[in-house]
Design a protein around this nucleic acid. Structure first.
Length: 879
DNA sequence: CATTTTACGTA
DNA sequence: CGTACGTAAAATGG
């Protein structure tokens, strides 16, 4: 006889999920004529139906709290004390929800003196014991402690209740860095605001995880509390009772006496009549339909809600069938790619049909698609090509070498700076149709539906592409699309990191920060959170009675500049220590971030966001490798941890010298500035000589500093006021400096004025290559907003042209590297700088290639100058 | 619990 | 009252 498939027990924390639904759905949209609110019930039930559909539990129960009082509130009366009154609109919905569940044949369980989570814990333990696969659904993080290989927790993610995060043991480790069983220890140390459990002062998630990882458990940690250095160590020793109390309260009870066992919870039949009764009372139509469909009863089908647009039904194809379909459809095809548990799910569409391709890792059944993606004459349109390339590569597919269309990038170019619209929004905006209706019934849909997006993509992409202005389309096709596979390769390869050096730096910075903190506390005789502007305000302005600084929205500024000014007028050791602490913690954060981001390959893989800026630049995230400290001592040490790869001989850096000013010279056509660049001498020295009317040799360092600040500031819309402030000179002197400057470089002033006026008329700015940025705010009646837009409009063509230029260089460099079969690789871009991992023997050739391609990436009235540097690490490769 | 504010690193 | 970004922690608001 066959063995039965493993039964699945699902236990839901009714209160917490209904409460989430209550806040996720608008109260006023769910109310019966009798005035009964139903949003929590509706949200909960639609989520439940999705869960039943997707998870197919064989056994099911919903647990509720009896009241807000339990053995925990007796133990610690303040437990959950921060929670305000439960909204009455919610309270009234709970009994009705229970009634509805009852009609649906679903067990509800509650137990005096215990919370719903204790019931989950108990049933999970019993279920696992009896051989069930257990799914716990709860909005309370404490349930994470229950996760085991057989027990999975589904937790509503940040995006409301529409998506549940699946916490397996691995997922818990990935999110928290500790195994599920250790979660209560972490929570005990950190505290839980929503439960009114205060943790150890100054201990956050990071510290707690570090400790528990080191000592194994809270008990072990407390046993060795004397070994913990610093203020946090002291806090731990003083406040260990809190941690122990928290630990006691957040430990879920696994042996609540319940009237049922897991096997009693087998799914029961739906009482159709009862459902019709209660659901009718609640005025649920689509839900009634869905519930009755579960029971196989179609007697009450209401066609009340219009169906979504007529989307084609996906056909699942593989092997020969897939090959045949692809052969017949050679026009541009749209593709969407999803990662699914053991492979990929791709949706293909020609605008008429939708094909679903389910690929399992290691199988060959999707080979026709893999092949078709690389056919040179076939065009593919993507939703987000770079991300999809990563997915394909992870599945072991050879990625296509070119990208023919990318909806994300195209829609960014349409409106850079605006949030990237979703596919549904674009469909609505460009096609005037709606994808799936915003029906709460579709909460938690994780099935095949996504593949239909390929059909929408195929229909909406050409509309978006063709709505780009002609010049924009050129930039899109010549620059942005070719860049996609290049960025993908850079992200995939990453840059090598000296992890040991990073760790060493990390602990050093941590120690120094702690020392500054100690000094700061000593200076004022008590402890304070140095990271809290509000608490600092208390110390500085109330305790120490320092003069008030610049006002901010919430009080007075405690930023670096404000503190430095205070230090001038009211020197105090606290200020010294605070500034030192700021520096060290900031650096520590950066180093810590890098250390944790180093991959198993010993390299750092950033993600370049091609659609992250309004000007055309790239941005870099997770980790951001475009804001690594550069100027300070420690900055050099940090940059020195970026090293060449094991198979390379060094790092090459190549950066444009004063590229934005050169672009300004080009755009303005100012003969004097153009001459300055053509001479190739020290620019600021030359400009200084012009402005101050002295011989170049007689330009003093002070003069040079002034014109340098002026020159750089020009491209940002600097005012005389701002210049005065920056140079610490009088406003009148700044004004004179500016007018002297423009006396010599008059066309620069004309250009800067002109660029704003042109933008005001046209409604947008444009770069040398045709990239546009809209500026509706230039005609705003709000002066602040208008002037801010004016400065941005002034800067956009210059910053944007610089971005175009380096992107063009990246494309030709990549092309040449491939043409010449070189092994060196581009690994980073930092706005005006490119960094390469240099393969042995290729240094000279690479330097020549990079210089030439960067210098010739644009034809300006002035030469583009490139500086090179080479070395074993980023610091030494900088010049 | 999610969003905003403050602060600070880069080009 | 100089542009363009991203991240972290604290503060704030639902």
């Amino acid at each position: 006889m066959d063995s039965k498939p493993q039964p699945t027990l699902m236990v839901i924390d009714g209160h917490s999920l209904a409460f989430r639904a209550f806040y996720a759905l608008p109260l006023e949209s769910f109310v019966t004529p009798e005035g009964q609110h139903t949003n929590a019930i509706h949200g909960f039930l639609s989520m439940l139906l999705s869960l039943l559909k997707n998870e197919k539990p064989t056994h099911l129960a919903v647990a509720f709290d009896v009241s807000r009082y339990s053995f925990r509130t007796r133990e610690y009366p303040e437990y959950k004390g921060t929670r305000g009154e439960t909204p009455p609109e919610f309270v009234g919905q709970v009994p009705l929800l229970q009634k509805a569940l009852d009609a649906m044949g679903i067990h509800t369980i509650q137990k005096e003196d215990y919370e719903a989570d204790d019931i989950l814990a108990t049933l999970a333990a019993q279920g696992e014991e009896s051989g069930f696969k257990v799914l716990l659904v709860s909005g309370d993080r404490d349930t994470l402690q229950l996760v085991t290989p057989e027990v999975t927790v589904l937790y509503p993610s940040s995006r409301g209740v529409s998506e549940l995060k699946r916490y397996t043991p691995d997922a818990v480790v990935e999110r928290y860095g500790i195994p599920p069983a250790s979660y209560p220890d972490i929570a005990a140390l950190v505290g839980e605001t929503s439960d009114n459990l205060i943790g150890i002062d100054k201990v956050g998630e990071k510290t707690a995880v570090k400790w528990i990882t080191q000592y194994g458990s809270l008990d072990e940690l407390l046993a060795h509390a004397d070994d913990i250095p610093g203020v946090v160590g002291g806090n731990l020793r003083e406040q260990k009772d809190r941690a122990l109390r928290n630990r006691k309260l957040n430990t879920l009870v696994k042996d609540v006496e319940l009237p049922v066992t897991p096997s009693d919870l087998e799914r029961r039949n739906i009482n159709t009549e009862a459902v019709k009764g209660i659901f009718g009372q609640l005025r649920f139509r689509t839900l009634t339909e869905r519930v009755l469909a579960l029971a196989g009863d179609t007697s009450v089908v209401t066609a009340d809600v219009p169906p979504p647009s007529d989307t084609p039904a996906p056909q699942a194809l593989l092997d020969e069938e897939l090959a045949r379909w692809l052969e017949k459809h050679t026009d541009p095809l749209a593709i969407v790619v999803r990662e699914v548990p053991h492979g990929l799910l791709c949706g293909l569409s020609d605008g008429t049909e939708v094909i679903a391709v389910h690929h399992t890792h290691g199988s060959k059944d999707a080979l026709p698609l893999q092949h078709a993606l690389r056919e040179p004459h076939r065009q593919w349109w993507w939703l987000h090509a770079k991300q999809d390339l990563h997915h394909l590569a992870e599945a072991g597919w050879d990625a296509p070498e070119t990208i023919d269309g990318d909806l994300r990038v195209a829609s960014w170019m349409m409106m850079p700076g605006r949030k990237i619209p979703t596919l549904a929004q674009l469909v609505e905006e460009k096609l005037g149709e709606s994808t799936a209706p915003a029906d709460p019934n579709t909460l938690l849909d994780t099935g095949d539906e996504g593949v239909v997006d390929s059909w929408w993509l195929h229909r909406v992409y050409p509309v978006v592409r063709d709505s780009l202005a002609a010049s924009q389309k050129t930039v899109y096709e010549d620059v942005e699309l070719p860049l996609i596979p290049i960025l993908w390769k850079m992200e995939r390869l990453g840059i090598a990191s000296n992890r040991a050096a990073l760790e060493e730096l990390n602990s050093r910075l941590l120690g120094e920060a702690a020392e500054y903190q100690r000094l700061a506390f000593e200076a004022i005789g008590h402890e304070v959170n140095l990271g809290s502007p509000k608490q600092l305000q208390g110390v500085l302005f109330d305790e120490l009675n320092m003069p008030k600084t610049r006002q901010t929205k919430t009080g007075y500024s405690t930023d670096q500049q404000a503190l430095a000014e205070l230090q001038e007028s009211n020197p105090h050791p606290f200020l010294d220590a605070l500034l030192g602490h700021r520096d060290q913690t900031k650096l520590h954060q950066i180093v810590e971030g890098l250390a944790t981001a180093v991959g198993e390959d010993g390299r750092l893989h950033t993600t370049f966001d091609q659609t992250g800026t309004s000007t055309g630049r790239l941005s870099s995230l997770e980790p951001n490798l475009q804001n690594i400290p550069a100027r300070t001592e420690i900055g050099h040490e940090i940059r020195a941890t970026f090293v060449h790869g094991v198979e390379s001989e060094g790092l090459l850096t190549a950066d444009y010298s004063q590229i934005e000013m050169r672009i300004m010279a080009h755009f303005s056509g100012d003969e004097a500035l153009i001459e300055a660049f053509r001479r190739g001498e020290d620019l600021h020295n030359y400009v200084g000589a012009q402005v101050f009317q002295v011989e170049p040799d007689d330009v003093t360092p002070q003069m040079r500093t002034k014109v340098k600040a002026m020159s750089y500031g020009l491209a940002y819309g600097l005012s005389a006021y701002g210049l005065a402030k920056q140079l610490q000179i009088s406003p009148s002197e700044a004004k004179t400096l500016m007018s002297d400057y423009f006396q010599r470089f008059g066309k620069v002033r004309d250009y800067l004025r002109d660029v704003v006026e042109t933008a005001r008329t046209a409604g947008y700015t444009e770069t040398l290559f045709g990239r546009q940025r809209p500026f509706p705010e230039l005609n705003s009646s709000n002066r602040m907003a208008r002037e801010a837009a004016e400065r941005a409009a002034l800067n956009a063509p210059m910053q944007g042209t610089a971005a175009d230029i380096i992107k063009r260089a990246m494309i030709t460099i990549d092309q040449k590297l491939r043409d010449q079969s070189m092994s060196s690789a581009m690994v980073l871009q930092v706005h005006d700088e490119l960094i390469f991992d240099v393969a042995p023997g290729e240094r000279a050739a690479l330097e020549a290639l990079v210089t030439s391609e960067m210098e010739n990436a644009a034809e300006l009235a002035v030469p583009l100058e490139v500086n090179l540097g080479f070395g074993p690490n980023w610091d030494q490769a900088a010049h």
